[in-house]
């Protein structure tokens, strides 16, 4: 038995060593590229560390007791079985910690619900199994669906680096502008999720939901449908390209002028 335990400990240590190789970034939530996503990351880390500290204290006491208070050491069991002050203490302390946690969380939440002064309005519609984007301020509208070839999915070809997170038509948006998304669905529930923007909301047929974002850095951000929506739920990614305002305006002008690069104008 003892050798077996040693073996297990050996394997576990190695497992964590391998995990460390993969790097902290792969293990943790993304910090994202918006002010709010940074705040969300901060909340996540705060609550994580609170849990770690509580865990160290509780498990520490427990392991101490497992090591020291064992029958094989010849200890006599104590007989105490209540202590009002202790019990009061460990009801109140967690309560206070929770309040401390809830306050910043509520503040962030209020910011997330502020959609005022949005300059760009985009309607997103979920379909089984693709997304439709409509730029409501102009008449540009297009569908966006998975562009990974079937041969890659069925292991006949080598998978490219963006396997299952590439689309035919990316959603193009400007940076440093408040964008408001209106979300609905054509058939079943979907959820539009881009981790880097800390945005996730359900698309519900017959109802609209809204969310808004200001992206700070240009780049390509990838997300996925997060609500089970049927057979190809795992195959409806989201790719959003954030560009400088000038570039965005040029793109938009071109897109509404003529049908460019596969953008179908469904409004006309």
């Amino acid at each position: 038995m003892r050798y077996f335990n040693k073996f297990l400990i050996f394997v576990m240590v190695n497992f964590f060593a391998i995990s460390a190789h993969a790097g902290w970034l792969d293990l943790n939530m993304t910090q994202g590229v918006t002010d709010i996503s940074q705040e969300v990351f901060g909340l996540h880390m705060l609550i994580l560390w609170i849990c770690v500290v509580i865990g160290v204290i509780v498990f520490g006491a427990m392991f101490w007791s497992i090591l020291m208070h064992r029958k094989s050491k010849g200890v006599k069991p104590a007989t105490f079985h209540e202590s009002t002050s202790l019990e009061f203490l460990w009801t109140i302390v967690p309560f206070v910690i929770l309040i401390g946690m809830a306050v910043p969380a509520t503040k962030t939440l209020i910011k997330m619900y502020d959609h005022s002064d949005s300059e760009i309005h985009i309607k997103i519609t979920g379909y089984q199994w693709l997304w439709q984007y409509e730029y409501l301020n102009s008449d540009v509208a297009f569908y966006s669906k998975l562009s990974t070839p079937y041969n890659e999915i069925y292991n006949k070809e080598k998978k490219n680096i963006n396997y299952l997170q590439e689309v035919d038509n990316e959603l193009i948006v400007p940076i440093n502008k408040k964008i408001r998304f209106l979300l609905t669905s054509n058939d079943v529930l979907h959820a539009w999720w881009v981790p880097d923007l800390a945005l996730k909301k359900d698309a519900i047929p017959g109802f609209i939901n809204e969310m808004s974002v200001v992206i700070n850095e240009p780049g390509i951000y990838r997300g996925r449908c997060a609500e089970l929506c049927g057979r190809h739920h795992g195959f409806m990614p989201i790719v959003i390209k954030a560009v400088e305002e000038k570039e965005y305006n040029e793109w938009l002008a071109n897109a509404s002028d003529k049908k460019t690069s596969g953008i179908a104008k469904i409004n006309k």
Binding site: D114, S116, D117, R180, L182, T184, P205, G206, I208
Partner: peptide, 13 residues
Amino acid sequence: NRIKTVTLSYSFF
């Protein structure tokens, strides 16, 4: 007062 934009959506079924 804080609501500055209202969106009305119609889904035709």
